[in-house]
Structures are given as structure tokens and as C-alpha cells.
Design a binder for these strands. Structure first.
Lengths: 343, 343
DNA sequence: TTGAAAGCGCTAACAA
DNA sequence: TTGTTAGCGCTTTCAA
């Protein structure tokens, strides 16, 4: 599979423009030290030839890499695909390409992905998945990312990650509080929680917010049923099954993300439980489809695309002495899936 | 931003294992000509050091590239994110990483993305977006991809692309026929079509299937209202608005993908039009959420993840003398959004 | 079976 | 302002 000449190379451009390799390189990467006339000529030739820099060669030669790595738990989860869209659009504006890796919510896997990205000398690594709480492997990943940063690599994380890196922090705790507040305001007390696995910081933070808001109303979260399941649609469906079976008195379900809420709604529909009259359901994230469900889903909007875009923009900026932290807002989207508790 | 030593290099492994660079290289890429004992030792050392090959160096040195490019229209469209998940999982098994590019349904943009991938000497390019019908720029993209293949690059497309490359062909035409057949069987005659832009081969093929099935029943598709709009949720919402306003007699809407169907359902709900009793709605693709909508969406399932996986597997195989073509099946998923026409 | 050495295409000193 | 040249980390002849 020996690949021959496919794309034109810098030498081709240089020759044709009658300049040296160095000059051509400078002209094309817009560095100074080239006369405008020459620069323009080189660029014209490059365009004419359809020249695109070979990222491998550039990276290997120590130039600024034009690839960023994006690590998501699962790309076909709308939460992540919306983040990815944000990352990709910013990357595009900067002439950067995006390598996507699945961690599949497996810290071991995530470590391997990080190693690959580091070995490939990417410009930056965006970790979009939730952090893990107190996990050995996470520590290995952390060490790897820290080393990457020490040698000039840039890292930005989305979510709480116990990592000295720029971070976009989704407003998980306040979002949880807003949602709990909303349900309590509607008169709910028998609230069940469809939770993702509690080794995810996202889950922990959302629960913390819920706990705080409930405590303000004299409700102890530990008295409420909590079913821990996969942080996915099917996990939500399963959690709702168990809630119906084991805690039939519940009047509301807080699902810790929209995927789980969608699963819960499916289960409730299958059981003929009317939403919201018999059971309110709320989620987190406001994925695109949430507003189009029937009943439309009450949830807390997190600006996913913006989060992805911001994460990459941070990572592309010069590093600051201390990590930047950008908090997202959240917006309670009250829709049709939540209503007053039945008299 | 001069990056120092981050990841261990092959020399590090070689030194530590007490062998030459060449031997280490051979041992790690599993080529022959290395004694089993030595190979094992080298691999052990590599694992111990957490060594991962530098893809840039490998690619530049003429080794088989470990990156594939994936071009989608829009990653936060479930159709594409499910395809991407399939591609990524196969890539992972093969130790390959995936670069994702948005073409944003802009042929010009797509061309630029292809050029970048070619310049980066990727192992293969998977074009997941629909082809375009008779477009100048498409021709440029075609030329670029053909040249890439001529020099050993591998290309696989998903959809009809007028390109001499391995292809996964979604069963668009038969799917369209199945859906039209389904509606006619329910007694519908006043069928309106919410169509994506007709420069997409996907749209053209789905329409062809619909036309064929309708013709079998003596219905001329040209007599039916067709609203052309963006191939997205919002496009579907817009198309439904126009259908309601301009063709109030319609009893069914065929949306040419699920995203458009979801938009159409939203519009109908907003106008208080009951589905399916007043209006049936059907879509294409069977994105994950289709079954969880209320009413659940009647649609035609295309195995997106499998399509992505197959496309990459084809691209990774040795090229055959003639392009392979793998047809997907389709499966009519009759759900709650379609019903008999009201008496 | 192993090793030495020549590049892959580019950037970044260093020279002119 | 421009050109020359030494690598970046790897694979792959070619020799031993």
C-alpha cells in the first residue's frame, strides 16, 4: 500500500513560486518576515495547486499541531454530539481537525485514548465526559494529562475533573436545585430519583443540588428512593420500572439526564401512567428533542454546543498561570411533563 | 510552545529492551523477522512504558496510517452520530483513530475537508453524507477522492455518490416504497411530502421509491403537494406549516427523514392537529428517539451504526478490483403516528 | 534474525 | 527579507 504522491507538497509550491522552502512555509503559515508581494504569490500558487499542509509533517517538525482530540463517553448520545458539534465548528474556524474518541464510560479505555492523543502530539485534548470520583485509573489519566500539559500540551475539560486544567463547569448543582425547587413548588414530596452511576461527578453534583434544595424544605434526600442505573435511556427505563414497582406512592421522578428521562417516560407510557397528572418527570440537559417529546420534557438547559465551543477556545488560548474556569448558566425549562401533585 | 518529550518514543523502548530501532519497530507492528523471544520482550517493555506509536511519524515514514477521516453533514444529527458510533467502534478495535469533519451540507466545505484528509495521508475516508446530484463542486470532490484512491488511499461512501468506491447503500428507494405502500394501505390518498432539498441523492431516491409505490396504485406523485425545505427538524416544522396552510385536505405527511418528521409532529401538536386520527406522519431512519416519541413514530429503520461499521470495514479490507457495494436492508416500523384515514 | 542508515514533509534555528 | 540545513519519530531498504 505504498502511497505515492497524492497531495502537492510544500516543495512543489515553493518551486513553482520560485522561492525557498522556508519562505514558502513562512508565507503560508502567515508568519512575518516575508514581503507581502512574495507572500501573496506563494499563497496564490498554493491555492492554485490545492495545496494543504501535511499535518503529520508539520506536527513532527515541531510546528503547532492542527489536531485536537475530543474524548466523549458516547458520540451517539445527544449530550455529547451537541458538544462535539460546538467543538467541531470552532475547530473548523481555526483550520483544526478533531479526533474523536469514545471512552464508553470506561476509565481504562479513557486512559488508552489519552495516551494515543498524547503520542500523536495533538495540540489540545478536550475531555467532555464526566469526571470519575476517586478512581485509581482516573489518577493515571490525570497523571498522563498533567504530563502532557507540562510539556506544552493544552487540556480543557467539561465537567468537574479534579485536574489542574481549564474547565467548563456545567451548572450541575444549581440545576439540580432548580429542578428540585420546581417540583417541591408544585407540591411534590414523594420524589423518586432515577440516577446514573454515582461514580460520575456529574451525577454526584446534580444530586448535591437536589439535596440542598430539598433540605431547604425540610426534606431529607436520604428518605427518598433512589435507583442507580446506567446513565442512558435504557437505564432510565429500568429505573422507572423499579420505582413503579417498589415505590408506587411516588408522584415525581427526577431523572439525572434527559436520556434517562426519555427512558422513564417510555416506561410510564407502557404502564399507562399519565404524565404529568399521575407522575411528573423532569430531566437535565435539554437535548434538542426534549422540547419535541409529548409531553414535552421539563428539564434544565445546559448550553452544550457552547460548552464544546468554549472548551476548545480556552484550550487554544495561551495558557494562563492558573487554570481558567468558566461556569455555564442553566435555565429551567418548564414544559408539560411536570405539573402539580394530584390533590 | 515547543513541546518537549511527552510520550515515550520507540528509541526508548528499543534501548530499554536492548534491541535496535528496526527490531523494535518490527516487533511492535507484528511483522515477521523477529524471534518470538525478542518480540515478546519488546512488547512487554512497550506496555510497561505505556508506549503508543506516534501516528505522525509512522504516517510520514510511509507506514500504514492509523487515522481515518469521517465526513458527516452534521454530527449532532442522530442519523450521523449513530453512523459515527459504528465507525468509531470498529476503528477502536483496529487501533485506529477517527477524524470527524462537518460538511454542513455544503459541497464546497466538503471539498476542503477531503483535501485536508488527503493531505494528512489518512488511511481511509468515509463519506457518510448523502451525495449531491449533478453539482460542479461535487465533481471536484470526486476527482480528489479518485486521485486519493489511485495512490492507494481507500474510500467508502454511505449513500449513492456516483463515485467509483466501496459503498454502503441504504435501501432508500425500497424504504420509500414501503412507507408509501403503508399509507396507501391505510386508505390515504391526500398525501403531502415534507422533503429535504432535492439536490441530495438521499432525497431523490426516497422520492423515487414513493413515486413507484404510488404509481402502482394509480397515484401520480406530481399531483401531490411537496414542500422542499432543510433536511432537518426545523425544515420539517416549516414544511408542515405550509402543508397545513396550503393543503388542508392532506391526511398524511411523509417526511423524508425522522428529523423532519419530528419537526412536523411539533407543528401539528402546536396546531392541535391530532396524530394519527387527523393526520398520519411517517419518517425515515428510525433514529433512537423515534420509538420514544408520543405518538411513537412510524418510520423505516435503517441500521445506521451497522452502516458506519460496515463502511469502515470495507475501507480497511484490501481493495478489490471492482468497488464493493453492500445494500442495507430496511424494516418498516409501524408505530402510533400512522393510522387509517378518517372515514 | 538483527542492525545501520536513508528518508517521509515540514518547521525553526541559523546564515547570508 | 530570504535561503540553508538539521532534525521531529518512525518505517524500510540494504547489509551483516
Amino acid at each position: 500500500m505504498a502511497r505515492g504522491r497524492t497531495a502537492p507538497r510544500l516543495v512543489d509550491v515553493a518551486e513553482r513560486a520560485g522561492v525557498s522552502l522556508a519562505t514558502a512555509s513562512r508565507a503560508l503559515s502567515g508568519r512575518e518576515g516575508v514581503s507581502p508581494a512574495v507572500a501573496e504569490r506563494v499563497q496564490a500558487v498554493a491555492a492554485e495547486l490545492g495545496y494543504v499542509v501535511n499535518a503529520h509533517a508539520r506536527s513532527l517538525a515541531g510546528g503547532s499541531a492542527s489536531i485536537v482530540g475530543l474524548i466523549v463517553h458516547q458520540i451517539d448520545d445527544p449530550y455529547f454530539s451537541e458538544i462535539a458539534a460546538g467543538v467541531i465548528s470552532v475547530a473548523y474556524e481555526h483550520g483544526i481537525t478533531v479526533q474523536i474518541c469514545h471512552s464508553a464510560r470506561d476509565p481504562e479505555n479513557e486512559l488508552r485514548q489519552i495516551r494515543t492523543l498524547v503520542a500523536n502530539n495533538v495540540r489540545a485534548i478536550i475531555v467532555a465526559g464526566s469526571g470519575y470520583v476517586g478512581d485509581e485509573v482516573e489518577t493515571a489519566a490525570k497523571r498522563e494529562l498533567a504530563a502532557f500539559q507540562d510539556t506544552g500540551g493544552r487540556v480543557a475539560v467539561i465537567g468537574r475533573h479534579a485536574l489542574r486544567a481549564d474547565a467548563v463547569l456545567p451548572d450541575n448543582e444549581d440545576a439540580g436545585a432548580a429542578l428540585a425547587e420546581h417540583l417541591v413548588g408544585l407540591g411534590h414530596r414523594q420524589i423518586a430519583i432515577a440516577s446514573g452511576t454515582v461514580n460520575l461527578t456529574t451525577v454526584v453534583d446534580r444530586l448535591a443540588g437536589i439535596e440542598r434544595a430539598l433540605a431547604d424544605h425540610g426534606i431529607d434526600i436520604d428518605d427518598l428512593p433512589l435507583v442507580e442505573a446506567e446513565f442512558t435511556r435504557d437505564g432510565g427505563a429500568y429505573a422507572a420500572e423499579r420505582i413503579l414497582a417498589e415505590h408506587p406512592g411516588s408522584t415525581a421522578i427526577i431523572a439525572l439526564n434527559d436520556a434517562m428521562a426519555i427512558g422513564a417516560l417510555a416506561t410510564l407510557r407502557a404502564h399507562g401512567v399519565a404524565v404529568p397528572s399521575q407522575m411528573s418527570v423532569v430531566g437535565f440537559d435539554d437535548v434538542t428533542v426534549a422540547a419535541d417529546l409529548a409531553p414535552s420534557l421539563t428539564t434544565v438547559r445546559l448550553p452544550m454546543a457552547e460548552m464544546g465551543a468554549d472548551a476548545l477556545m480556552m484550550a487554544l488560548k495561551d495558557p494562563s498561570s492558573r487554570p481558567r474556569r468558566r461556569h455555564t448558566g442553566h435555565e429551567l425549562m418548564v414544559r408539560d411533563s411536570s405539573g402539580p401533585v394530584r390533590a
